[in-house]
Amino acid sequence: MTSLAPAVVAAGSDGSVWQVIFSFDNYTELLPLVRNSLWAAAILGVVGGLFGTFVIMRDLPFAVHGISELSFAGAAAALLLGSSVITGSIIGSLLAAAILGALGTRARDRNSVIGVLMPFGLGLGVLFLSLYQGRAANKFGLLTGQIVAVDQTQLSDLAVAAGVALLALIVMWRPLTFASVDPEVAEARGVPVRLLAPVFMIALGIAVAISIQVVGALLVLALLCTPAAAAIRVTASPFWVPVLSTLFALTATLGGILLALGSRIPISPYVTTLSFAIYLLCRLAGRVRSRHGWSSRTHHAGPA
């Protein structure tokens, strides 16, 4: 910490701190280098926006965080072994999702298991990273995200994984919505509620694993929770919630990369800040809307 202080003071004295945070020097030359990264961010924005709708609906933000810790451990193990980080991340996520999915809708048991998995996964990941002798940026990126030169192979792998997760979500969209809103009635009407829970958790595990590539394991909720939470603040429509959630997630991911491109700061602060700003705006808009609706109802009710 003390070694950083002189650098911060020196940077602050000449105003260069802002150039570290927002620097657009040589921006046009840098932009073509992250074309694949922008495509990857767009894919992750769609995945985060759509899955986030059910994460909020089924009250699973804590589960997302738990899955991300084992996903981080899997990615760190892959980094140590020199194999695909995405593959390792997905394996870790699927393992956690399978454990949580087997618990079904028992929230108390699920939260207890998540509380056990989170420190274990984080500790295991830190162990693997401490044994890794490669670039420090690779370690840091797993936790907080980073802009990387995504090659065509990595982009293809990401697209395939996202396609599998989205296809599974689309197939079970209607029964999953019914089971999320009223599981007892859905089960009484023949909806396979007990089967949907583990299947959705496995698909969610894939979504968490690929989302870590942008925002990192520690901040994955900014992509799989915040956009949907913001959308629900302004509408209750089953159509507009996923649409707005996806638009908000796309804004955060693409905007985060475009803002971080010219700086030396990881992408995650930009993504999380944009997501949080969108949430605050939607919360404010929802409050204004509810007050307007209340005042309108009062105005019409008065003369009656």
Rank of each mutant, 00 (worst) to 15 (best):
I206C: 04
T144S: 12
A77K: 00
V185F: 14
S268A: 15
F54D: 01
S268P: 15
L81G: 08
L4Y: 05
G141L: 04
G12H: 06
G262I: 06
R108K: 08
L280P: 14
S290N: 12
E187D: 15
N36Y: 13
G104I: 04
A179L: 06
P32H: 05
G49F: 04
A249K: 01
N111R: 02
S275H: 05
R297H: 11
T298R: 09
V243L: 12
V17W: 13
V64E: 07
S71W: 00
R297Y: 11
V64F: 01
V288W: 08
P238W: 01
G48F: 02
A301D: 15
H65A: 13
A42S: 14
S290Q: 14
K139F: 07
F51A: 04
P266D: 04
P61M: 00
A161P: 09
F24L: 14
H299V: 14
H292D: 14
S295I: 05
A42R: 00
L143W: 03
S245P: 11
A277G: 13
S237R: 03
A203W: 03
I56N: 05
L142K: 01
G123C: 09
A137H: 07
V20Y: 13
A5W: 06
L250H: 02
L131P: 12
A42P: 07
R135I: 06
E184A: 10
V126D: 10
L259I: 07
S37H: 11
I206P: 01
S16A: 12
W240R: 08
P238E: 05
L258H: 02
L38I: 09
P119S: 01
G82T: 09
G205L: 03
L100V: 10
T53V: 10
A98T: 13
Y132F: 15
V47M: 06
S237C: 10
G66N: 04
V85T: 11
S180R: 00
P238M: 01
M1V: 13
A96M: 09
L79Y: 06
S23C: 12
I147N: 04
A149H: 13
V46K: 01
S295Y: 04
A42G: 15
N26Q: 14
V55K: 00
F239N: 06
L281S: 13
S84T: 07
A149G: 14
I91S: 09
G134V: 05
L258G: 06
I265N: 07
A77T: 09
L94S: 03
C225P: 04
G92Y: 02
F72V: 06
G12L: 13
A203R: 01
